[in-house]
Structure formats: structure tokens, C-alpha cells
Write a protein that binds this DNA or RNA. Structure first.
Lengths: 112, 112
DNA sequence: CAAATAATAAAGCAAAAACTTTAGTAATGG
DNA sequence: CCATTACTAAAGTTTTTGCTTTATTATTTG
């Protein structure tokens, strides 16, 4: 029996964020939109490879793209990052809660 | 010429977060500490595999562990999550800044 | 129209990642 | 002690990734 519940979105997002090239692409795009070719320039990697990374980012909603003519322009999609942020915040919340309850327990009548 | 700058910590953290089993472990640990064996129970996976995941989480500072006797107790280390959170917040900041500057530009004298 | 450009699909490949199994070591418990 | 438990190191296997190359499709441009 497996434990994971089906959170396909979170899974896609964190998987996408797990690769350093994709994070570099996101850093670039957070400054300004760019075409796939633009994105490829700083990397020692084929255009095809960058295109594949962009597809991964798009599926995870970290990036939104639009193809006009023969060029595809990419920009940040806030949805994906927001999902990642929410997951982290929720862990933090639950974790901090634990200490609150612990403190509460320790404060009960007998402060020894 | 490669583009990535050396951010080994961020890299470790996001790589660790990229795996669903490890995220499930973190969700578990955010509720309460647990031993490696405890963590293994809900998974259809060998104890050794879970031990390996714990090691990855530890290296990325998402988890802190202490071995006392023959059992190793694991708990959340806030450091790793905080790093991930910072990276995401920074992306968000830069990205939102862009719109502020855009709005500023559009507001300049000629509001046409 | 012909040549160059931008992207992409497809197939293949090598390296990395996620496991497994086996064989330990070091506690602990009866 | 002896058996069990909790973990771990090591080695091997399978799957998944990240990439390449090649070939194709659409644009665009001279």
C-alpha cells in the first residue's frame, strides 16, 4: 500500500523546480519575458533541450507561453510558484503549531 | 559557457523536495518527530530506501536527526524549508517589481 | 520563390536517481 | 548470552531524466 495522496499539481511543480537549469530559466523570466531562443543563449545546451525544459515548466504552471508566428514567448505564470509557496507555508504552519501546543502543555498548572 | 551560479544549498533543497516520497516524509515530520522505522510504515518500500531518503533530506537541511542507541529520530529542520521559501519569495518579488515599473512607465505624463 | 530562422517531434543514449537485496554493525531485551 | 531490532553500507538493477541528433513543420525575409 502506497502512502502518497494524489496531489499531481504540487508534484509537477516541485519536480520542475528540482532542476537547476529550469530554476535559472525562471530567474531569467521573472525579470522579463523571453522567447525560447532567448532563453537558450546563456546555456551550453541545444535549443531542443531548452524547449523541453520550457514544456516541463509550462505543464507545471510555472510558465505560460504563447506562440505567435514561429516564435514562442514565455513568461512567468504565478500559479505554479504560488502552489509551491502554499505547500511550504502549510508545512511551516503545522510545524510551528506543534511548538505552540507543546508550550501550552508545559504551561499547564504545574510549571515544573 | 554554462549559466548556473553555484548555489549548492538551494540546489540540494529543491532536488530533495522534488521527490514525492520525501515530501510525504516531511509532511509526516511536520506533525511530530519519528524514527526511520516509523517513517517507513506507510510506504510500500524497504526500510533501506527510506533511510536513504532521510539522508538526502538531512544533507539538504530539511531534516535534522539524532541517533540515540540504535534508533535514529528525525525531525524537521527549518533551515531547508526557509531556503526554498526565500528563493520563491525572491522570484515573486522580482516578478512583481516588473509590473510596478511597467505601471510607472504607463503613468508617465501622457496617459494615452 | 528560395534560403534562413524558430521551434518541435521523435528516437536514442548516457548518467543520475530510486529502488532492491544482501550482509553487516551496534543496541536492546528476555 | 542469544535472538531480535534498528539501522546502514555496499553493490546491483531498473526507471527516469536530461540531453543529443536528425528530420519536419511553419514562418519570415531577401
Amino acid at each position: 500500500m502506497q502512502a502518497q495522496q494524489a496531489m499531481p499539481d504540487v508534484d509537477l511543480v516541485f519536480h520542475a523546480l528540482g532542476d537547476p537549469t529550469r530554476r535559472a530559466i525562471l530567474e531569467r523570466l521573472s525579470r522579463r519575458p523571453a522567447t525560447v531562443s532567448d532563453l537558450a543563449v546563456p546555456f551550453d545546451m541545444s535549443l531542443a533541450a531548452i524547449g523541453q525544459h520550457v514544456q516541463v515548466l509550462e505543464r507545471s504552471r510555472l510558465v505560460r507561453t504563447e506562440k505567435v508566428g514561429r516564435t514562442r514567448t514565455c513568461q512567468i505564470d504565478p500559479e505554479g510558484l504560488s502552489l509551491a509557496r502554499q505547500w511550504i507555508e502549510e508545512r511551516k504552519r503545522v510545524w510551528e503549531d506543534r511548538f505552540d501546543r507543546l508550550a501550552e502543555f508545559l504551561d499547564e498548572d504545574d510549571p515544573e
